[in-house]
Computed example of a mutant assay.
Amino acid sequence: MNKQPVALMSDEKEILDVEYPIVEHFNTIQGEGAHSGRASYFIRTAGCDVNCWWCDVKESWEEEGHPVMKVSELVEVVKESGAPFVVITGGEPLMHDLFPLTKALHSLGVQIHIETSGSSPLTGELDWITLSPKRFKKPTEEIFEFVDELKVVVLTNKDLAWAEENAAKCPEGTTLLLQPEWDTPKSIPLIVEYVKEHPEWGISLQTHKFLKVP
């Protein structure tokens, strides 16, 4: 199921020639969130205007200095991988118009998942939307009706209040997850106790870091 209307371009060639700055792309296993453990192809776009201080891919913040790839090239590497599930992440992927890339990827029959802060307008043909909102750059209001998964990184009690504020805007049935910040161990017992008291929430762990999966 696609969450956004399709934006048709003039022809297939025009779509395939659209370019994106790409930090990295690779065949892997989704390590966190609702699809943890699932075979996936990751596409990490360059450029971010959120700049979380705990970000472990700060090299993705600047758009300049990264290779530019055509949609046709990205479709080909995904096709060769055989992965049934594509994760578009960043940086902040919604800084780019994702309609051309997602439309072309859907021609392969794959499902498309985006991980976003929601701070830029929503674009693309998307099958699963993970919203990871940040207190210092809030998501747009229009994204909430499309959210499948709300995943909030927790450092302190303020983040738990922030999680509830955003959950109240999400559709009924949205998967609600709290994720400890990797370098903030004190967030783990905070989350564990909160989930015990609020069972509508679950816990997301960065299993790829434990397993050393890229």
Score class of each variant (00 low, 15 high):
43 I>E: 00
144 F>D: 01
140 T>V: 15
208 H>S: 08
90 G>Q: 00
197 E>K: 14
69 M>L: 13
136 F>V: 07
72 S>C: 09
26 F>A: 11
181 E>Y: 10
127 D>T: 09
167 A>W: 04
11 D>S: 14
203 I>Y: 02
135 R>K: 15
75 V>M: 11
28 T>E: 00
179 Q>L: 12
185 P>E: 06
85 F>V: 12
138 K>P: 03
11 D>R: 13
88 I>Q: 01
179 Q>D: 05
39 A>F: 12
70 K>S: 10
201 W>V: 04
161 A>I: 13
19 E>N: 04
132 S>E: 00
1 M>E: 02
169 K>D: 01
110 V>H: 10
207 T>Q: 07
5 P>F: 11
115 E>A: 08
188 I>K: 12
196 K>L: 14
57 V>Y: 06
123 T>P: 08
26 F>K: 13
97 D>C: 11
76 E>S: 13
25 H>V: 02
157 N>C: 05
152 V>T: 14
121 P>F: 13
89 T>V: 11
44 R>E: 02
118 G>F: 10
121 P>E: 12
48 C>L: 08
146 F>R: 10
21 P>A: 05
139 P>M: 13
150 L>Q: 03
76 E>M: 13
27 N>Q: 08
191 I>M: 01
109 G>L: 07
28 T>F: 03
190 L>N: 02
5 P>S: 08
78 V>K: 08
187 S>I: 05
81 S>A: 11
16 L>F: 09
59 E>Q: 14
197 E>F: 06
77 V>Q: 12
149 E>N: 11
202 G>H: 00
102 T>Q: 04
210 F>W: 15
190 L>S: 06
127 D>M: 11
58 K>Y: 13
31 G>R: 00
153 V>Y: 12
91 G>T: 03
197 E>G: 12
211 L>C: 08
129 I>Q: 00
58 K>M: 09
14 E>W: 01
142 E>M: 04
108 L>N: 07
89 T>R: 05
201 W>Q: 01
139 P>G: 14
102 T>V: 09
166 N>H: 15
162 W>D: 07
144 F>S: 03
94 L>D: 01
75 V>S: 07
116 T>K: 02
37 G>N: 01
43 I>A: 09
22 I>C: 05
200 E>K: 14
40 S>M: 05
60 S>Q: 03
202 G>V: 01
